[in-house]
Design a protein around this nucleic acid. Structure first.
Lengths: 263, 263
DNA sequence: CGTGCACTTGATAGAACTCAAGACAGGTGG
DNA sequence: CCACCTGTCTTGAGTTCTATCAAGTGCACG
């Protein structure tokens, strides 16, 4: 595997991430790649804990997370939090293929982050999909994949033990990060507190802490200092039952439409 | 509240259910209602445990559940099962707004059921949305709502106690059934075994059984013999933190498109 | 050098699971 | 009509898992 590019959130020269991410789903034409590259021209820096989307808000313009991590989450009235999923560098968020869509939950940054407006991508895919068949296909498949990860999350918290949940989540993150070149087969950045991981997995902080220690003592994974190391990938896989979503890439036929307000 | 129609799965004269269900999202023109009504003309009887959709299968034609209950689910290799959500009478399933979509999980009947092909609805919404603005809006909002319920499921199993989970699920089911006229404010059919409910809520059968007993002893709900009775709705609500999805009905503009293969 | 945050540890309580067995009902075949 | 299934529900006992409470460590930062 080739050398990874710099990950520093202060230097968001990488529209490369989203290009890699969407390229896995569909071949992109040079002008489509160019469109993606142009998205990073107006970066915006955000501190950790910034709300990206509020529940109920109209999803007007999609945005691109260039660097840093975010998540979608919801609180119960008494303060319990559930994290639905993580938004990783190179991910698009706030892009809904349904017109008039409304955000179903909050999205918030978990670290310092750099985002940029991706209205150009939204226009391309929603209004002129026939002109951007590669991007359109890629965004559709990306949306399907996101949904598949959400189903994986349901199985994880509904039917797996704490030990299995952690294993499963780490494999998911390693896989998603490696797609955009941010992780190797056994190493990844993991800028999450144990509290955040616990809230994603439906566990208490203390129990997550002990579970992580157990996984390390067992020589399976090591999570520390903002990075994760997979010490025994095959054992990890047999514990987690993680399956990468099967991405059956099929090109959008020319003339295929999403939706367009022709007003 | 008026008398409910007969619920007998052997007499599926009710395309009325899907009409009621979609009408909540958008005003439907008479010809749109007529299209929905025509869907029930070719009913098909299925026994409990019939697979409706297999994971990975191409979603070609949407179908309508006229009577009976179904669910979407996944098994772990060792036999543990997680149910993602329930498909209720009047629900459309297998309708994906993304072209070339593939089923992300299995769907299977939980009771004897009656289904019918809803290709006409799929055509209308996917190929000629401008001709069916009411149906199109309704299907979009229905899809959003389904996704909202899935997020509710994540919070339920991730951050609620067994007691709260049961309360939350029962309120969700009561709400969804009442929309199509199959439940009153405190009564609903509930043709599920405790094993099924347990697999939906991420609990063991035994523990679910004891939790149901506790809820009954507390005078909150009674689940028995295929029906559910809400004995103390306000207490139930305060336990469950169930929020009906906020359906901000906005009409699709004329000329708005989903996607259409123009080949 | 104090302060705050994340992480860690120990002790304990509570929640939930497993195993095992019995009760009950509906359906079937003799 | 009865005996016998089978599936579902129920109950008890014991164990495991996970949460809670409380305190302490370590580090980064002002």
């Amino acid at each position: 595997m080739s050398r990874l590019p710099a990950l520093d959130p202060e230097h968001p020269d990488q529209a490369e991430l989203v290009i890699r991410r969407l390229s896995q789903y569909s071949d992109l034409a040079p002008y489509e790649v160019e469109l993606l590259r142009s998205l990073s021209e107006t970066p915006e820096r955000l501190s950790a804990g910034t709300e990206l989307i509020a529940e109920g808000e109209r999803l007007e313009t999609p945005r691109l997370l260039l660097a840093g991590w975010a998540c979608r989450q919801r609180y119960l009235p008494d303060g319990r939090r559930q994290i639905f999923d993580f938004i990783l560098p190179g991910d698009i968020y706030g892009l809904c293929l349904r017109p008039q869509a409304v955000a179903l939950c909050n999205a918030v940054t978990l670290t310092r982050a750099t985002i940029s407006n991706a209205a150009a991508l939204g226009d391309a895919v929603l209004s002129r999909p026939e002109g951007y068949p590669g991007l359109t296909t890629a965004c559709l498949m990306s949306a399907s994949t996101d949904e598949a990860y959400l189903l994986g999350q349901v199985v994880r918290i509904g039917r797996q033990t704490a030990y299995e949940r952690v294993a499963h989540l780490l494999l998911e993150l390693q896989y998603r990060l490696s797609v955009v070149g941010l992780a190797t087969h056994d190493f990844m950045p993991l800028p999450l507190t144990q509290e955040i991981i616990a809230d994603a997995l439906g566990l208490s902080i203390v129990h997550l802490n002990r579970t992580l220690q157990q996984l390390r003592r067992d020589g399976i994974v090591e999570v520390r200092g903002g990075v994760g190391r997979l010490l025994d990938v095959s054992r990890l896989r047999s514990i987690a039952d993680f399956r990468a979503p099967h991405v059956t890439a099929r090109r959008v036929e020319s003339g295929m439409r999403l939706h367009a307000a022709s007003a």
